[in-house]
Amino acid sequence: MRVAAQGGYLTPRRRRRLRETLVAIASIGVTLLGLVALTFFIGRMLPLDPVIKIVGENAPQAAYDRVYRELGLDQPLIVQFLGYLKSAVTLDLGNSLTSGRPVLEDIGRVFPATIELATVAMVIGTGLGVPLGVLSAMYANSWIDHVVRTVCLIGYSAPNFWLGLMGLMIFYAGLGWVSGPGRIDFVYEYGFEQRTGLLLIDTIMAGNWDAFRNAVSHIVLPAAILAFSAMTYISRMTRSFMAAQLTQEYIITARVKGLSWRRTVWRHAFRNIAVQVLTVIALSYAFLLEGAVLTETVFAWPGFGRYLTSALLAGDMNAVVGCTLIIGIIFVTINLICDVLYRVLDPRTR
């Protein structure tokens, strides 16, 4: 750690650092404000009638008008925006028009399912993607490299909702290797206490092994489909980082010193690209959340993505806007973390 004692005053270098930090914070603030403005704009553009969702299709006009006023739809746009901004800052996203509950509460309820799916996908994607990327760079232009690159190419060319559908048809309906749509069989669902909302952990905590096995057999297919796209991204990036590293002089020196190729790559070169790979993994986690939207729809996975798509189709404006805003905030946060990670950990940016 380089917190050397440099006296209490601001050195020019520190001053620059401080300014950079302040600018960074300010720009994130502006970005977040922009996020809010953009989602508000989208929300107002929606040609849906939020009132009807509340009063019902057959309500008398008086009730309709009352709810119209209650929702503040008769106010000028700017007043509506300020109100929206205020509620966005306090993360009060309003009530979902479908469930009648606060959107934030709904999102909190469905989020663990998505986190669980994305995390398992992440583990599989990283576990396969990083070694494949390294191997591909190590043996550039060999058959391994070609296989890995072809698989990656297919991975980012295939629509993952289609892969999910085909996967269900083959591995569930056809071969019966895995369980079908949903997170867990209905019969197990309420047989244990859901403390964390992460079923793999909850079933272990409850010691309910049947339920655990069932949850595993449900998650493996959607996670594998998601992991496939994460893997292609991770291995592609890892390969290009590693390829750049392998042309460095120290690699040649190490080779000349008689270190084995495998040892050189894993012990030396990999250490140098570790931070870059870590940021790529963090970024791909963010993209997994995006991929989850369609995958969850295909697998009837009761997570964030399905919540969003059903809100879209039900015309639940508050939920759509809330979800979009939350995803935006998560994205900005993950980017920020990557940035910080990079600055703090990477030897070259110190």
């Binding site: 849906l48 009807i52 299709e57 189709l313 015309g315 639940d316």
Partner: peptide, 8 residues
Amino acid sequence: MANAQLFA
């Protein structure tokens, strides 16, 4: 369209 939109 979504049913809510249709009804509206």
